[in-house]
Design a binder for these strands. Structure first.
Length: 114
DNA sequence: CGATTGACGTACG
DNA sequence: TCGTACGCCAATC
């Protein structure tokens, strides 16, 4: 892979997040791992926190934790926004948790085929 | 300017 | 197999 040092780690997270297909979801670890920072999952979360300040808007609602739980729902205008958006894309949510998460899971390293 | 927290995940006991 | 500890980097207090 080319040198990704051209852009900040945050920007990489934003770009990958924007590449998430509709009706698909991914985890912080998957993104961090794809960027070569599997242990920096926390940073990915911070990036998502700033995602609301990024343009164009980043589909942060498609990013959940390893368990498929809507951990960042609190960062949205309303805690229901994240779930509503995911349901709008055809993803079922139960108790703030994605149903068939594995089925909707989107791995950048798999789909982007590096 | 220093310490703590934070949308997580992996390692170790 | 389950529980606890650590790492990561930046922002906030």
């Amino acid at each position: 892979m080319p040198k990704s040092s051209d852009i900040s780690f945050f920007a990489q997270v934003y770009q990958v997040t924007r590449l998430i297909p509709k009706g698909r979801v991914t985890s912080y670890g998957a993104i961090g791992k794809y960027l070569g920072a599997a242990k920096s999952a926390r940073m990915v979360g911070w990036a998502m926190n700033n995602a609301g300040s990024q343009l164009p808007s980043v589909p942060a609602h498609r990013v959940v934790n390893r368990l498929g739980i809507l951990s960042g729902k609190g960062a949205f205008p309303t805690p229901d926004t994240m779930q509503t958006l995911l349901e709008s894309e055809g993803i079922s949510i139960k108790n703030d948790k994605i149903v068939n998460f594995k089925k909707h899971f989107w791995d950048p390293s798999e789909e982007l085929t590096l």
